[in-house]
């Protein structure tokens, strides 16, 4: 097999990235919540491991949506 392959390149895996500290702050401020109120994702989720995210990190997902094109979703690693 030539070259390293990442599960992040799979068509069914939504685009995702770890939010920077200031981005997280902005996000929490926007919705007026703490990290506890965000949807969760397990630390042993393959995508989390691939991204190298640690507990407490917030991951941004860009999902496809039939009408609006893309939809943003945020999940905190637990």
């Amino acid at each position: 097999m030539a070259g390293k392959r990442s599960i992040l390149d799979h068509v069914l895996v939504p685009k995702c990235r770890i939010l920077k500290e200031d981005e997280v702050e902005e996000l929490l401020k926007k919705y007026g919540v703490s990290k506890d109120s965000l949807p969760k994702i397990l630390a042993d989720d393959p995508v989390v491991k691939e991204l190298g995210a640690k507990k407490g990190d917030v991951i941004e997902f860009v999902r496809n949506s039939p009408i609006s094109g893309k939809a943003l979703y945020y999940r905190v690693v637990v």
């Binding site: 919705y31 919540v33 979703y73």
Partner: peptide, 21 residues
């Protein structure tokens, strides 16, 4: 536009139905 679980103050969707429609 968010969908939240009121009793636990948790966000379930950031945009209603992912498209807000």
């Amino acid at each position: 536009g968010t969908v939240r679980e009121v009793t636990r103050d948790t966000i379930v969707q950031f945009t209603f139905g992912d498209d807000g429609l």
